[in-house]
């Protein structure tokens, strides 16, 4: 059932445009190129992020897109599902997972962008690349928790949807996407560790830039937070599930 829903959603997305799947590659690629041009070539901001900058950008921007699309979708999950929830005894979480899986598959499909960036820069990853898949798993857990929190929260307090959009915008700049954690002043690094995305993005990047670390403590805080959010999401959702079912 879930597989069907996700497949249809993807199909819907890809049949609407002529270039179909190519857009999944072109969109982040274009974004990375624009950002690279602005920050690296035009502003000439050396020492900003790590070399090679295009690859550095691509590795973080793809997961970020997945994150922002999935979380954005989770704010409007209940808008169209009311009638379906009324007649279905399937687990309510299914609708949340659906929103996340669609964006995740898009992310996985866009991974060739990283290959393109590698080919373009000729910069190969080291053995730490094994943590890349771990990053995907952790990010999914984090997003699942967050999406459950947002989805159930927006039933109690509908304005959460709007707030999430602004917070997402801020997160883009507060997370080491355009820059590296080593650009953060030493004093602020500890605070940055409380951003779960720092840990997740670290897992993605460690394959290429093992020196770009915020230290074991920073990582544990950041990744521990992912776990806490996951558990909090699951518990909150369980508490509010009947409220959601009543309200839709």
């Amino acid at each position: 059932m879930l597989r069907m829903l996700v497949l249809r959603d993807l199909q819907k997305k890809y049949t609407r445009f002529r270039l179909g799947y190519l857009w999944t590659l072109l969109e982040p690629l274009g974004m990375a190129v624009v950002l690279w041009l602005v920050f690296s070539v035009l502003l000439g901001a050396r020492g900003f992020g790590l070399d090679p900058y295009p690859l550095f950008l691509a590795v973080a921007i793809l997961p970020w897109w997945w994150f922002s699309k999935g979380i954005g979708a989770s704010t409007r999950i209940w808008r169209k599902t009311g009638a379906q929830l009324r007649i279905s005894t399937l687990p309510t979480q299914l609708w949340v997972v659906r929103a996340l899986l669609v964006s995740m598959i898009e992310f996985l499909l866009s991974l060739p962008v990283i290959l393109i960036a590698i080919a373009f820069t000729g910069f190969l990853p080291g053995p730490w690349i094994v943590l890349f898949p771990v990053g995907i798993v952790v990010q999914f857990l984090l997003m699942y928790g967050l999406a459950l929190l947002i989805a159930s929260g927006s039933i109690v307090f509908p304005d959460i949807g709007r707030m999430v959009r602004i917070v997402l915008r801020a997160m883009f700049y507060l997370s080491p996407i355009l820059y590296s954690v080593s650009n953060i002043p030493a004093g602020a690094q500890f605070i940055a560790a409380f951003n779960p995305l720092v840990g997740v993005l670290g897992l993605y990047r460690i394959g290429w830039w093992p020196e770009e670390a915020i230290g074991a403590i920073g990582y544990s805080i950041s990744l521990g937070l992912c776990l806490i959010i996951f558990v909090a999401g699951v518990l909150t959702f369980r508490r509010l599930e009947n409220r959601i079912l009543k309200e839709v």
Binding site: M1, M4, L5, R8, K12, A83, Q84, R86, I87, S88, L90
Partner: peptide, 18 residues
């Protein structure tokens, strides 16, 4: 519960599944 953007066949599977 039907999804307007699905075909009839897909909708039968959807609602049947629900």
């Amino acid at each position: 519960s039907f999804e307007r953007s699905y075909s009839m066949r897909q909708n039968i599977y959807l609602v049947g599944g629900l």
